[in-house]
Each structure stands twice: as C-alpha cells, then as structure tokens.
Design a protein around this nucleic acid. Structure first.
Lengths: 189, 189
DNA sequence: AACCTCATGTAACCAGTTACATGATTCG
DNA sequence: CGAATCATGTAACTGGTTACATGAGGTT
C-alpha cells in the first residue's frame, strides 16, 4: 500500500467513483496518470479494500464504479492516525529563478509572467468551487462547514489551494517588479 | 539532460561545489539523494558541461569540486529561455485532509499541529537566511539585491519560501480552529 | 569502541510518465 | 469521417528511493 493507494481510498470514502473519475479528481492533490491508477485499483480490489460494479451508460462507454469496503475504511483510519510525511514540491521555475541573472531580463520576465497567469487562472477556479460548496451547504460568506460534514475535507483543501495561489501571485508580481523592464518589443499584445 | 541536471548547473553557475554540497543545497528546491546526483555529475562531466578537480582536505575526506564550463553555461541559458513546466506538489497531508472527518478530532488535530510546527521551524530559518543576505549585500530591511547581483536568485527564492511558510502556518491555524478541541488528555505539554 | 558527519559510488527496487492498444459515443 | 471525450488496460522507460559498500576524521 503506497500513498497513492491511500489517496484513492480517501476519495472513495466520500462517494463511489470510477477509475477515470478518480484519476481526474486526484490531480490537484497527487498528480497521477490513468496507467498508474488502474493497476492500483485492481490490487486494492484483490485485497478487498474496495469493490466495484460495472455500470452501463447509454451515452458513454461502460464504467467500473469502485466503492470503499469496511476493510478499506479501517485501513484509511489506521493511515490517518500516522503522522503525514513531509510535502514534496518540485518546481522547475525555482531552479531557473536561482540562476536567472545569467540571462537578459527580456528572457527572464516571461518565465514569471507565465507563472503569474497560471496562478491567476487557478485562483478563479478555486474561488468558484469554494463558493459552490458554501451554496450547497447553505452557508454565508466566510462560514465553514462543520467538521463532521462530508464537505469539510474539500472545503479546507480548496481554501489551502486558494491561499497558496494568492501567495504565488503576490510573489510573481513582486519578482516582476524587481526585474528591470527594458520594454523591448513593447506594445505587442 | 533532465531537470535535475539543469538544477545542478544552476547551482554551479554561482560557485563551484562538490557533489555532496550540491546534494545538500538542492534539497529545498528539488529534493534528491546523493545516489541520483553522483551519476548525473559523471554524465555532465562526460558531456563537458562541468569539470572537476580533486581537492584534498586535512580535516575531512577528499572531495571532487565541480565547476560549470562555458558549454554548461550555454546549455543553462538555452534552458532558461524555455517556459518552466508546471510545479508538482505531492503532500500526504492533503490526501489525509480530504477524509479527515472519518476519524475523531483527537486523531485529526495532531496531523495539523505537527505540520504547523514544521512550517514554524522552516519560517525561522528562512527569515534568518534573508537577513544574512541583506547584511552581506549592505542592504537595509526591505531593500532587495539588484537583478544583476549574484545574490538575486537566492533572495527571491528565500522570499518565496518565507511567504509560502507563512501562508501554510496561517492555514494550519485556521484548520485547527475548525476542528473541535475536545481537550482529551489536555495539559500534557 | 560506537557513532556522527563528510565524501563518493553502485545495485535493486518502487513510483511515475510516455507510449501502445482498444473501443464506445458525440460533435462538427 | 475525423476529432474529442469517456473509459479501461498493458508495456517500456525514466526518475527517485532504499539499501549496499567503503573509508577518513572527529566526538562521546
């Protein structure tokens, strides 16, 4: 049982999902391709951590909808009791930032400009999702779902994502202010 | 040439370093073990991207000190001109957070409490390093090194790390306020 | 003597990505 | 009819971790 397997159990603890849906939903928290997820689901099924039923769809191909079993939920609870390992962040931009002075500002600026736009787009999506959770739970702005609500997990995760995006936006703008703007090829957008 | 190889060139663009030192210094930006770094350095040396000289030390074992070559610097500049790929973050705590309602608050709280302490410790180290860069550059509080200064890269990276730590601390405290504190086993610290 | 840090390297394994492969359904 | 999305799977490869291996020098 590796971390991704527990991640799949974590998602399934809220509702049954197909392998394809699991792959899409786990992306923001633990990026993984379908080729990694399908074999793990087979393994989890062999260990009776999850079960599946084939669901026919009229408009789309058939799918295997997985549910967590009581054994899977027990594994999940044991895993939750253990300390979480340290986060791992790998960002090519950080490696580039360290040696950015080796190139002209005209080369350097787009690196941070692109990243700024990336986080601005993400921020909008996160804010929309938080608003939708609050609508669904009948909560006013700033109010949080109860700890025992099944929206609690998604709510705290989305808030982390939103806060991180804002910090990254702030940092990108701060860096862009520090890089000389020689205005080469200005006015071309 | 993979991303880690460029990361090594990035570090070497500031000053010559041993494989061991490279391994220690790249940790905050791109975690890697010595077993991954030594073979890459050999490969970079074969391609004449880096060169090394063996340095004898009286108090410690001999070391191979690597320097970037002009060919290595050219590769680095080409790489800098390409857009940086999206950052990859994998954090077990995020997977646990999503299903945290499956366990008692007494199990849940320490997860976030430990992470809070982790980021508080990191924040102190980052603030110290920023202060030391500012001292070395003869800068007053809030002043930044010039883009063309060789401290610029480290300075903007440390500021990102500091800002992220603060955001994470804020988030952990906010989550801890949302998790009911049943005060089981209280007063034991 | 046992242990820690510094220092370099290889081997075996696990995790993750890219590519290959198939097929249904919908949309333009 | 070609492209896009949904859906599932395997094979080959690359990236990254753990373990094995060695050895100098200093600390307890």
């Amino acid at each position: 049982m590796n971390t991704l397997s527990y991640g799949l159990l974590s998602l399934l603890s809220h509702s049954p999902l197909s392998g394809y849906d699991l792959m899409l939903r786990i992306q923001p928290f633990w990026p993984a391709k379908h080729s990694q997820i399908y074999p793990l689901l087979s393994a989890l099924e062999k260990e009776n951590q999850v079960s599946f039923e084939t669901v026919s769809q009229s408009d789309k191909p058939d799918k295997k909808v997985y549910s967590i079993t009581s054994k899977g939920l027990a594994s999940l609870r044991e895993w939750l009791a253990e300390p979480a390992s340290d986060p791992v962040m790998r960002d090519e931009l950080m490696l580039k930032a360290y040696c950015v002075s080796a190139v002209d500002p005209v080369i350097a600026r787009p690196l941070f400009q692109r990243r700024l736009e990336h986080y601005e787009a993400k921020l909008i999506r996160f804010e929309e999702k938080i608003a939708s959770i609050q609508r669904d739970g009948g909560l006013s702005d700033g109010e949080s779902p109860n700890y025992h609500s099944d929206r609690f997990g998604a709510y705290i995760l989305l808030n982390k994502a939103m806060m991180s995006s804002r910090t990254n936006i702030e940092w990108c703008r701060w860096v862009l202010d520090l890089i000389p703007n020689t205005n080469e090829n200005s006015g071309n957008d």
